[in-house]
Amino acid sequence: MMKCVLTAEKLSVGYSTDSPVLRDICFNVNKGELVGLIGPNGAGKSTLLKSLRGILKPLEGEIYIADHMASALTDHEFACLTAYLQQDVHIAFDYSVREIVNTGRYPHLQWWEKEGIEDNKIVDACMEFTRVADLADKSVLEISGGQRQRVMLAKVLAQQTPILFLDEPSTGLDIFYQEEMFRFCQELCRAGKTVLMVVHELSLAARFCSRLMLIGNHKVMKDGKPEDVLTEEYLTEAYGVPVRVVENPRTGHVEVYTEPNEKNPERKALLHVIQSGETEDVHGKE
């Protein structure tokens, strides 16, 4: 028996009622699913994630999180059920990695309390899991982008919530860090957590996610198993350019790419303008 942990009911999200980014969205997410939200830039993936997390108020409809009506949850209750990893966190001062991960314990402490032995154990385990334990005392301003994302993941895990919302956790990282990020999420989902993440790397999404939601045209265009969603037909419609999906015979993985645009005479003219002032001899002609 699958247990439903997240439900969106006739959900409209966006920044103004006149032109919602997404309209009339309905879906259920079960416990243990690793859901990838895919779609072109500006389609509303992050907006949907923010609304599900309660950071943006939905324009219409209701969200249910583990049988609780989201609109009735307090900030604190929300933080005990769901954690949220932002796309880009600006950290103004040189906090240490441990101090940042510690903030994940915030919802579990009373306002006068400080972290106890139990909290430190959890923080240690989270840093160990995301392989940043050896960076614990380093400044977050000194570590690489990949390490930083792992630190933020550890922080989100320290919150000990059944549901995780991750906004582009692997964007901008090298292939090793990207795959590791997906592997961490896969492990977490097998252990019973539910993860919703915004993804741009379609072949990685196909390999690791248990379910994909293709977002475009102000709606969820297709929702299902990766092989059912990543079809040339749906992707071409969503991204607005001819998309090819092929299986790499050596790896068995799906490869997605766009067909090159047909030769356009206007672009040649543009290139001519761009290059018109170029001279190889920077000192000018003698």
Partner: peptide
Amino acid sequence: LLMARHLNVLVLGDIEAKAVGLP
């Protein structure tokens, strides 16, 4: 001094603070 820990979370910005349940 009593509230110093909350300031640590507030420094990380509105969204981050709200995400861990700070009003």
